[in-house]
Design a binder for these strands. Structure first.
Lengths: 250, 250
DNA sequence: TTGATTTTGATCGAATTTGGTTGTAATATA
DNA sequence: TATATTACAACCAAATTCGATCAAAATCAA
């Protein structure tokens, strides 16, 4: 059995079961524990799975959005760096759109450097933080999604259609060369898509853990946005650079 | 069974039942009590659940009061009682408006008793809390006021004009027989006024410390609203009762 | 074929996980 | 209230899994 075959089997099992045990893989492939450990190690290093004691699990299960508190602490330094870099792109007097999500939230402390900004956001949490920083903020109306505290729905869409932004900063649960930028919830996906359309320049902020992740709903092709990310390898960057503009921070 | 599997089962059970007993988890996973205790400990330390004697419960346990961080501790018992009384007025299937302000916020934990509510609010903080309690919430668009984290402005007004509420619950910085209900900010005052107009029944929530206080901008005559208050003397109540309906709680 | 490179499987000590035991604390019952 | 029951944290020893290493096997190149 070839290495490629084994790894396909592993990923396939993961898709089905969300979790695989090393033991099962041994009987499934006939390979030794050592070999399969090596496979898992390889697959983990390109973010295709997450190793756990006794096996491996999906990096994210498609229909599960981890609650904010859980997500918030992951890859903190990376998010901070991304947030700072993104905020530095903003110019005085601009109107910008801020998506929901913790990565985007890290931009806010750095936004106070800029004068006379107007921020439009669909995130209740971001709005609260923007108010703390005394940044002029506008919320389009919408229905509130409990899980992410983002505003969605037809009202939001109608409102956004009548706005135009200098820049939009969007979060993503996954991005890949083939599938573009994706997120679990179709309604939020539609907001992201629309915000990108209504902007002169659109940026997707996402750390390396989201690379090669595909979530349910696609909201942008890589060619239509500029990616701001951190923690990617040179090889991965090279590959991405063929499809989009990438800002690697740190 | 892998650690990760067990923990997923635990969280899944919590989502369904809001509470799990250690005993049930033992029969559900086949793992020992020690192991499951460890799992609960781990999950608690990353804030995915709250341990209780004999098992665990969701972090946001529905029937429990939120920890309120701020200086909102003034007259806490009074506000709680007012919030509870106000929430009890609400009926299933109603559309209600919630104003901004801490007193109003105390209603939210008690609102979960009612089924199929739709809450409209202009307060970002209330919205966030409503999301925590999984209550259907709609935010009309508007400009965000930093000081109070309330949404104001023409967009908000236009939106509210097209809505109609079964009940509106409004906060006030002052109320008196002569000057009616008042609040410092004219823009917020306009929102309150409008919300009252658009409702079948309007309630102003305000504790006794606001009695005979007059703030800059008036948004309602006492005759147009029902006052929900606490801590007033019999004499004061008698006086007020001539001008308006008063619910004294506690 | 020969020699170099890669892949594989086995081994072993270290690290992790697990289930049971113990004494203590919390809860239930009388 | 006093007592019995149950759940708890802390600890330990057994079992499992892990990572590192190395030699055998397979693959490749000339």
């Amino acid at each position: 059995m070839l290495t490629e075959e084994r790894q396909q089997i592993i990923l396939q099992q993961l898709k089905i079961h969300n979790i695989v045990k090393l033991h099962d893989l041994i009987s499934l492939t006939g390979a030794s524990a050592s070999t399969l450990r090596r496979d898992l190690k390889d697959l983990e290093s390109c973010h295709k799975l997450l190793r756990i004691h006794g096996g491996a699990q999906n990096v994210i299960s498609l229909h599960e959005e981890p609650a904010l508190s859980q997500k918030a602490t992951i890859n903190l330094d990376g998010k901070k760096a991304i947030g700072k870099a993104a905020a530095n792109l903003v110019q005085n007097d601009e109107v910008i759109f801020l998506d929901s999500g913790t990565t985007i939230q890290f931009m806010i402390p750095y936004l106070i450097e800029h004068k006379n900004l107007l921020v439009v956001t669909n995130s209740v949490d971001n709005a609260s933080m923007l108010a703390d920083y005394n940044i002029d903020t506008f919320l389009p109306g919408g229905r509130l999604k409990s899980a992410t505290k983002a505003l969605v729905g037809s009202t939001m869409i109608q409102t956004l259609e009548s706005y135009h932004f200098d820049r939009a900063f969007i979060g993503a649960n996954g991005f890949s060369v083939d599938s573009g930028c994706t997120t679990p919830d179709p309604e939020e996906s539609m907001i992201k898509k629309l915000a990108i359309e209504q902007s002169n320049l659109a940026f997707v902020l996402s750390d390396s853990s989201k690379y090669c992740q595909v979530s349910f709903s696609k909201f942008a092709d890589l060619k239509d946005i500029t990616l701001i990310t951190s923690g990617l390898s040179d090889k991965e960057l090279e590959l991405l650079n063929k499809k989009t503009r990438v800002m690697e921070v740190n």
